[in-house]
């Protein structure tokens, strides 16, 4: 059945869709060219060329047996000792139910750094709400694969995970205020909102041993728990009604 959307939603949707289609064309052409270029070269060379051991400790370098594994150039390097508490990356994210803009840092771990945990602080300006709100987000990412496309680009075809967002303001609660009768008058929390997300990334590897080693552009589609619950109970609710777009930049620091 066809749903009629309100005119504002149509307008915004059309604008955003056209932007994204342009971005998709750009990204796919870029990725296509990169893969084509990559096909002309020996992937082993690329691997060794780009391996730049850091200042602290050295990567566990193993010659890769097959071509597919060579496409994933990520290597997780550990700092020695106390330096492990230094965040490995910084992030900026636009929208995604965690405020207008969120800024933060995080740590990556796993053999290829395929796990990331971020702490983000964001804000919701007064023009988009009743008053100015701060937001705080804990985000867990899983990035299983990285496909090397040429010398300095890599495409990460899947990022997924979840985050919990907290918002400031006295109108929100974690536990219901005492004025409500019973323990579960409403039975939900308005202050903390869990989301799940899936997305993709494009990473540009910089040369040299500077502070920033690579820059990733990412986009995500996310949905929150309450909307997922609503979707489960309503056939008429389209997936597009509960899924929202967000985008951001990640700067990989030092390692």
């Amino acid at each position: 059945m066809k749903r009629r959307k309100s005119s504002f939603k149509q307008g915004v949707a059309a604008r955003i869709r056209s932007c994204f289609i342009l971005a998709a064309i750009g990204l796919s052409v870029l990725a296509g060219d990169a893969v084509y270029a990559h096909g002309q070269k020996d992937s082993l060379n690329i691997q060794t060329e780009n391996h730049q051991p850091g200042q602290f400790g050295s990567p566990v370098d193993k010659p890769h047996e097959n071509r597919l594994r060579n496409l994933d150039r990520r290597v997780h390097l550990r700092y020695p000792g106390w330096r492990n508490i230094v965040p490995t990356h910084a992030k900026v994210q636009y929208a995604g139910g965690m405020g207008f803009m969120s800024f933060g840092a995080g740590w990556d771990y796993g053999r290829k750094g395929q796990w990331e945990t971020d702490f983000l602080i964001g804000f919701l300006p007064k023009r988009y709400s009743d008053k100015f709100h701060m937001t705080f987000t804990i985000k867990q990412n899983y990035i299983p694969w990285s496909i090397s496309c040429g010398k300095s680009l890599a495409f990460e075809p899947l990022t997924c995970g979840m985050y919990i967002n907290y918002i400031s303001g006295e109108e929100f609660w974690v536990r219901e205020p005492d004025r409500y009768p019973g323990a579960k008058y409403y039975g939900f929390t308005s202050r903390a909102r869990p989301h799940v997300f899936v997305g993709e990334r494009l990473t540009y590897y910089l040369r040299g041993n500077g502070l920033v080693r690579n820059i990733s552009l990412f986009y995500e589609f996310s949905a929150n728990d309450l909307d997922i619950m609503a979707k489960c109970g309503n056939k008429s609710l389209a997936l597009s009604d509960i899924i929202f777009f967000s985008a951001g930049i990640k700067l990989q620091m030092m390692r």
């Binding site: 959307k5 939603k9 915004v12 949707a13 955003i16 636009y94 929208a95 995604g96 139910g97 965690m98 405020g99 207008f100 919701l124 988009y128 709400s129 709100h133 937001t135 967002n165 918002i167 929100f172 308005s190 909102r193 589609f221 929150n224 309450l226 909307d227 997936l239 597009s240 009604d241 899924i243 929202f244 777009f245 967000s246």
Partner: peptide, 10 residues
């Protein structure tokens, strides 16, 4: 499949 961005559910 997406229709817009959401700054916050609230």
């Amino acid at each position: 499949t997406t229709s817009c961005v959401e700054y916050h559910p609230y």
